Amino acid sequence: MDLRIFTEPQQGATYDTILRIAKATEDLGFDAFFRSDHYLHMGGVDGLPGPTDAWITLAGLARETRRIRLGTLVTAATFRLPGVLAIQVAQVDQMSGGRVEFGLGAGWFAEEHAAYGIPFPDDKFSRLEEQLAVVTGLWATEAGRKFSYDGAHYRLTDSPALPKPAQAKPPVIVGGKGPKRTPRLAARYADEFNLPFGSVEETEAQFGRVRAAVEEAGRPASDLVYSSALPICVGRDDAEVARRAAVLGRDVDELKENGLAGSPAEVVDKIGRYAAVGSTRFYLQTMDMADLDHLELVASQVAPQLG
């Protein structure tokens, strides 16, 4: 069972704060450190001292960590042109020695686009599909050959398709709750399908749709990793759980319903329910990035029970 730490730095974090939690992630034995790709805070916080860029952050972490996988959940296709994005991800993969994983989504938060002057088109999903085609096509082009693409949104002519990532292809993560187009995209491009913030029942249903789409595309359903992203709030006793939930501005009962919350035993049981419907990898959304004791508790009392 892979446990990965997933953070939301737009809510308020410096690079040094991110580095501390990434190093703790590595030292405590977690599989990977992931971050969101957002430029504006959400949910009533002030977001101070301001946002950090996802791929600049990961470039720094690539040189300051040694073992953990690194990635985004997920990069917004609205933020970067696909040719430039392919270069950025390939370079960070080289800098990390081949530890990058690439999550890509359509982009959804209109307010952050307005705040930073980023176009927010109506046809985001079709742009996402073309970005996946371009980025993976550039990486797959043999050295010495050229890559061209003529789409509705992006056109590349005789690209040298360089640089190459350290890996033959960084694993591509596609996710979401869309019942038709999302499974089709995952079947065509993904190495991993992620369902964020879904119930056990929603997870089972969407994994089933993705498996069917993968098989229809001529791939074994087992080609993909199936993963879940859920908020984490663990305590040694009820008071500690309540204290951590209060820091997040969340109700304990609501967190238990919609995330992984409670005692280590309760969280292990909940993870087991997701595992029973196919989740083999969990992104633990860690909102309080200063609470490294929380990570230690998960590493020492939750992870060992999962095998």
Rank of each mutant, 00 (worst) to 15 (best):
G218N: 04
S199V: 08
V277G: 05
P196Q: 08
D16S: 14
V267P: 11
S36D: 05
L224E: 10
G144Q: 12
T280C: 04
D122M: 05
A276W: 03
H38E: 03
A213T: 08
K180D: 00
E257F: 09
P49A: 09
L138E: 02
S148K: 07
R20Q: 13
E202Y: 01
D2V: 07
G176S: 07
G144C: 13
D191M: 09
R69I: 03
V277Q: 03
P183S: 10
R184W: 05
V268K: 09
P264V: 07
G176Q: 09
Y15V: 08
G107A: 11
A261L: 08
G105M: 10
W139F: 13
D16I: 01
Q206Y: 00
A133Q: 13
A90D: 12
G249M: 11
A212L: 04
K146F: 04
D27A: 15
R181D: 04
I173R: 04
L230F: 02
P170V: 06
L230A: 01
E101R: 10
D158H: 11
L195W: 01
T182E: 07
I271S: 08
L70W: 13
P170Y: 05
L255N: 10
H38V: 07
V135M: 06
M289W: 01
A143G: 12
V45K: 12
W108K: 10
P121A: 12
T17H: 08
Y39M: 14
E111K: 14
P82Y: 04
K177H: 14
A86C: 03
S96A: 15
T52P: 00
P179L: 09
S228D: 00
A90V: 12
G50H: 07
R184C: 01
D158Y: 05
V200W: 08
L255P: 06
R4F: 00
E216Y: 04
V174H: 11
A32F: 03
M289Y: 00
T78R: 03
T286Q: 14
Q305M: 12
F282T: 06
V277E: 03
S159V: 02
E101S: 14
G176E: 06
L224P: 07
A205W: 02
Y274G: 06
Y274C: 05
P49K: 04
R236V: 14
G107C: 08
D150K: 06
K169G: 03
T78F: 08
I68Q: 02
T7P: 02
W55A: 03
A110T: 12
Q167C: 12
E257Q: 15
T25S: 09
G144H: 12
G12D: 00
F109R: 02
V241D: 02
H41K: 13
Y15K: 02
D123S: 12
V241C: 10
E142G: 12
M287S: 10
S96Y: 10
K23F: 00
R145M: 02
R63L: 15
L48T: 12
P196G: 04
D93A: 04
L28V: 09
T17L: 07
R209D: 00
F197D: 13
G12C: 06
T157F: 06
S96K: 08
Y39A: 10
H41A: 15
A213R: 09
R69M: 09
T75G: 10
R35M: 15
D269L: 11
A115T: 11
H113R: 12
A190L: 06
W55H: 02
I87Q: 15
F193A: 06
S222P: 04
E101F: 08
A13H: 06
A90W: 05
V210I: 06
N258H: 14
T57M: 03
Y189D: 09
